[in-house]
Write a protein that binds this DNA or RNA. Structure first.
Length: 562
DNA sequence: GCCGTTTTCGGCCCGACTGTTTTCAGTCG
């Protein structure tokens, strides 16, 4: 059995859920959840690790390491299968409902025989739940509401969708009194809910929030939760003098917060969203900014994108945080389409937009002719395009670089012959077809493009489209390893629908010295500003200016590519 | 179940809000 890290993580996560339902020690439960998280973020395959080296990974001990070995051999592990046999599978889906945790699910199951969402709905409608001690009429209503919102629930948002919800909610907030926190602020590629910190008093803001909410989940003096555009929004109220600690708390991540609080404890302090309390005399130190709070703890400031308990806290205490790439370092966009293929802008317009963005260059990378749907270019069209680019570049401040996005065909060959590719300045090779190939075939297909002397960049290496298409099966650690041998760059496609490569693989690329290129894959004028999404993801992957070829000058870029 | 320049046993982040209670358990972030 060759399980992926995601599959192993799912097994460990299920174990955590089942243990919760049986009322096991919460710390044991948390250990499984934590191990699942760790496994999912590990760039190399756990099933290729041996037991000893697994035990060295933080959050994985002797027991869980043994279980991972068992998954490797058999696809699962005995304890998990035993629990699965004892607990109805549909009971787990009750945990998906808002307001139902393991205790509630367990009680409903034991007292009323409720094993599924449908059972719960019937029982609530029949007013049978209020008979159980600890439950009442309100609970029945709440369960029915949770079921209804569960049924119309949508997946995590991409960053553009998140920004729509944010603008809807913040239109009722006073400008300059708030900041958006949570995973949005950490630059994640997908967003679950929206978190906002504000200094506007609850008494003033709560009535205004009601006007933009489809539902108020709960409302208080310190915190209000609502649903807007079918997404959960959490608002925390604070004062300017305590803004820093609240922003830190609400930005997370959860794992980061836990680690920070542990560190505070070890130094005789207690950290919460109101400040840092000295445990010896109970004084509360408050912080208007996050910078002051970090400084109080004697830790270097950690930018939101790094706050994942992914080694950044250790790096901050030893002053070894990476120098992260920033939008200001970006000198050009390395992947855009013109109206020569499926884009909407002319070459002159591309150059004009590049100038407005303050870029030195833009790589015009239209599709090759094999991609039927995108009106791809053939040899003759490319020659004419080269000529037009040359003319435009004579008096343009932003230079067009002549590139192409060539297809990696199902057999690993490229959509255009080598002699044509050799004439182009930058060649991006991407998979646009046969997404269903099995992992080893797909991996070797992409590896053969990496091996090609003509290919400079592998475009959107996993092919995912957020919310629409899963990544294709591919062993990226092999691709990264080979790219490091050949000097091929991997793309971080900055489209908010792709963000591909994502942070974990950016980090792995940086470690192995593989260069990253950021391309917006723009097909129209409004997409060029998506560069910022790509930069955030690279920062999350500890990306430095040296590791990102968009920071090169035009001459350095061309020399790198030649 | 994990983990350790205080510990190999005994801890494990901290607080808001709700509903059902007469003081708190459960859920959530």
């Amino acid at each position: 059995m060759d399980s992926t890290n995601r599959q192993v993580a799912e097994k460990l996560h299920s174990m955590g859920e089942l243990l919760e339902l049986t009322g096991q020690n919460v710390f044991k439960v948390r250990a499984y959840y934590r191990a699942a998280d760790v496994v999912e973020r590990l760039p190399s395959a756990v099933t290729k690790c041996d037991e000893r080296s697994l035990e060295q990974v933080g959050g994985i001990g002797v027991n869980i390491a043994r279980k991972i070995m068992e998954i490797k051999d058999t696809g699962s592990f005995r304890e998990l299968e035993e629990l699965k046999a004892a607990i109805p599978a549909s009971l787990i889906e009750l945990l998906e409902l808002d307001g139902i945790g393991p205790r509630t699910a367990h009680t409903l199951w034991q007292k009323l025989g409720i094993e599924s969402i449908e059972d719960l709905e019937r029982a609530a409608r029949g007013n049978r739940i209020r008979a159980v001690r600890g439950f009442g009429e309100k609970k029945e209503e709440k369960f029915l509401k949770s079921i209804s919102s569960f049924r119309q629930r949508s997946d995590r948002m991409n960053r553009l969708e998140a920004e729509e919800v944010i603008s809807r909610v913040t239109e009722v907030l006073l400008p300059t009194t708030f900041e958006v926190a949570g995973s949005y602020r950490r630059g994640k590629s997908t967003i679950g809910d929206i978190d906002i910190v504000t200094t506007e008093p609850a008494a003033l803001l709560n009535p205004k929030l009601r006007t933009v909410a489809e539902e108020i989940i709960d409302e208080g003096e310190k915190k209000t939760s609502l649903r807007c555009q079918n997404k959960r929004v959490d608002v925390r109220f604070t004062s300017p003098s305590r803004f820093g600690s609240m922003l830190l708390y609400l930005t997370g991540s959860k794992a980061f917060n836990i680690r920070m609080r542990e560190i505070a404890l070890n130094n005789g302090y207690k950290l919460n969203e109101y400040g840092i309390e000295d445990r010896s005399h109970g004084n509360l130190n408050t912080f208007a900014t996050e910078e002051e709070l970090f400084s109080f703890l004697g830790i270097e400031y950690i930018v939101p994108e790094l706050r994942e308990d992914w080694g950044e806290i250790e790096a901050a205490t030893t002053h070894s945080l990476p120098n992260l790439v920033a939008t200001g370092d970006i000198r050009g966009d390395l992947h855009v389409h013109s109206n020569w293929s499926d884009g909407s802008l002319s070459l002159v317009e591309l150059s004009g937009i590049g100038e407005k963005m303050g870029y030195e260059y833009i790589v015009c990378s239209d599709h090759s002719k094999t991609l039927g749907i995108a009106r791809g270019l053939d040899e003759e069209a490319l020659e004419r395009q080269a000529h037009e680019i040359e003319v435009i570049n004579r008096d343009a401040s932003c230079r067009l670089v002549h590139g192409i996005e060539v297809d990696i065909l199902a057999d690993g060959s490229l959509g255009l012959p080598a002699h044509i590719l050799a004439d182009l300045d930058i060649v991006i090779a991407s998979v646009h077809s046969s997404f269903g190939q099995e992992k080893d075939i797909m991996t070797r297909r992409v590896l053969s493009a990496v091996d090609s002397d003509d290919v400079d960049i592998i475009g959107h290496p996993t092919g995912r489209i957020i919310g629409r298409r899963k990544p294709y099966e591919i062993d990226l650690s092999r691709v990264i390893e080979r790219a490091s041998d050949t000097g091929t760059a991997l793309e971080c496609n900055a489209s908010p629908y792709r963000l591909d490569l994502d942070d974990v693989y950016i980090r792995e690329s940086m470690k192995t010295g593989v260069k990253i290129s950021i391309g917006t894959d723009s097909h129209g004028a409004e997409e060029f500003e998506h560069m910022r999404f790509g930069v955030s993801v690279i920062r999350r992957g500890w990306g430095t200016p040296e590791g990102v070829i968009n920071t090169y000058s035009l001459s350095d870029l061309l020399e790198w590519a030649s």
